[in-house]
């Protein structure tokens, strides 16, 4: 049984020198979650804005759906993506299961409803003020979407950040579709789960520290960029 201080000193040692395994895990985590978030924003931002400003039959249902999906447990979503990608599934022929691509797909599906739902709410609120002026200027819908996204850029940056935080911190979806394979699909959260169960607390804790540091750095970057965007 290691003592608490022993654990801490080992954590410090792991973090002081660049450990290749640690770097690989952190790198993959960032690659998967950033890619998933960027893709989710590319679709979720315009989708959310359209839902807010364009009336169409079934709009209420769509809103209800994405708001519900926002709270979907990652394991359930992982399971659905697993079924989709498994050998006998409809997309099994792509042979993506247990690859980083599968993890990106799962996290994309996780982040998309968050970005779309938060965007929809934000854009709907400002649409009350924009509706008449946009109609007055005869702005076509696509341009109105662009205008509202740009004018709400600060709040929407926070929405994207919420999506990214969800992606980088979840474990349920990536462990199911990625399988936590060493040097291939092991990311920070799955590694923490594994190392804790093996009893390697220093490594698990070191990963936890890195995870929190990354969250801090990204938030700080976003926070400082807000001044420039305003």
């Amino acid at each position: 049984m290691t003592t608490f201080s022993q654990v801490l000193s080992e954590v410090a040692m792991l973090l002081s020198g660049p450990d290749p395994d640690l770097i690989e895990i952190v790198g993959l985590s960032l690659r998967v979650s950033v890619t998933a978030t960027v893709l989710a924003c590319l679709i979720g931002l315009p989708l959310g804005a359209l839902l807010a400003i364009r009336p169409f039959p079934g709009r209420g249902l769509c809103t209800l759906l994405i708001n519900t999906l926002m709270g979907m447990p990652p394991v359930v979503l992982g399971l659905m993506v697993y079924l989709l990608l498994s050998r006998s599934g409809p997309m099994g022929f792509l042979q993506l299961l247990y690859t980083p691509t599968a993890m990106i797909i799962a996290q994309f599906a996780l982040v998309l409803p968050i970005v779309a739902a938060l965007t929809r709410q934000q854009v709907e609120d400002s649409w009350k003020d924009y509706c008449d002026p946009m109609h007055s200027l005869c702005v076509p819908t696509t341009s109105a979407v662009q205008t509202l996204l740009w004018d709400n850029r600060l709040s929407l940056l926070t929405a994207a950040l919420a999506g990214f935080s969800r992606a980088i911190s979840e474990v349920g979806a990536v462990i199911i579709v990625g399988g936590n394979i060493d040097h291939l699909t092991r990311v920070m959260t799955t590694a923490i789960v594994l190392e804790t169960s093996k009893g390697d607390l220093p490594l698990a804790l070191a990963l936890g520290v890195v995870l929190m540091t990354i969250a801090l750095i990204i938030n700080a970057l976003v926070f400082s960029s807000k001044g420039k965007l305003a």
């Binding site: 003020d129 924009y130 008449d132 002026p133 007055s136 200027l137 005869c138 740009w150 004018d151 850029r153």
Partner: peptide, 16 residues
């Protein structure tokens, strides 16, 4: 409408 323009009672300033 395309040939008209309106300044509203509470004018909207675009966020730029």
């Amino acid at each position: 409408r395309h040939r008209q323009a309106m300044v509203f009672q509470k004018p909207l300033m675009l966020n730029r």
